[in-house]
């Protein structure tokens, strides 16, 4: 399996993603600079977290139009799995590969802490190593993570099973108190219609090694390796 991690100016989780990918794949991914129009042949493309282009205009808006994204969009439309974490999720929505938009947190604060998430489905390339409705602990670190889409879009996402993760209590209950940023319907991550593109605000790569304090995140990368190998 070959993976590529796209590096934008201002990305800061690209190496974390590479470490988690290497742990799962047994070999390092290719690191692809945003200005490159060429993308190596990849079974998986990862858009990492960070503050691409300093979050100018809107988070992810500039990166969504960088040269490499034209190729990422083409590959995604052809079915190559794409994982966008945090800023990568924002880039995917701005690029039109995922529905909705990430807005300023309802608290207006940058939030950096571990949260609990409920895995909404386990039959995708990203989640097959998780148990049904498993509650996992991933860190969040963002100021623009409030997921917004209009009611009709949210209904459609739920109806089509495109909600990937929701913020929840430790026992899996979906409550307002467990929602850190004001996301509609506690949504922390969504799939595209074919469930080959996933975007999520929390960081699986930051709890993907026991030395980091948790391993809930590594299962996402192991799922991808098992599916794509």
């Amino acid at each position: 399996m070959k993976a590529s991690v796209v590096v934008f100016p201002g990305s800061n989780c690209d190496r974390d993603a590479a470490v988690a990918l290497e742990a799962a794949m047994g070999r390092p991914p290719a690191m692809v600079w945003h200005g490159d129009a060429e993308l190596p042949k990849s079974d998986l493309i990862v858009l990492p977290g960070g503050f691409s282009y300093g979050d100018y205009l809107r988070s992810g808006a500039m990166a969504a139009h960088s040269p490499v994204m034209r190729e990422v969009i083409k590959r995604a439309q052809a079915g190559t799995p794409v994982l966008g974490i945090c800023n990568g999720f924002q880039v995917l929505t701005e690029a039109g590969l995922l529905p909705g938009v990430l807005m300023r947190n309802a608290t207006l604060k940058f939030i950096c802490k571990d949260v609990h998430l409920r895995v909404e489905r386990t039959d995708t390339a990203f989640t097959r190593h998780y148990a049904k409705r498993e509650v996992v602990r991933f860190p969040i670190a963002h100021k623009d993570g409030s997921y917004f889409a209009d009611e009709a879009t949210l209904d459609r996402l739920e109806g089509e099973g495109q909600v990937a993760f929701r913020y929840c209590e430790t026992d899996g209950r979906i409550t307002a108190a467990a929602n850190p940023n004001g996301s509609r319907r506690n949504i922390a991550g969504v799939y595209n219609e074919t469930r080959t593109v996933l975007g999520l605000m929390p960081h699986p790569e930051r709890l993907a090694d026991a030395a980091l304090g948790g391993t809930d995140g590594i299962k996402m990368f192991l799922s991808l390796v098992e599916t794509l190998n």
Binding site: L57, R58, A61, H65, V101, M103
Partner: peptide
Amino acid sequence: EQLLANTII
């Protein structure tokens, strides 16, 4: 349409 505004919001 393409960049300056995000017409979803």
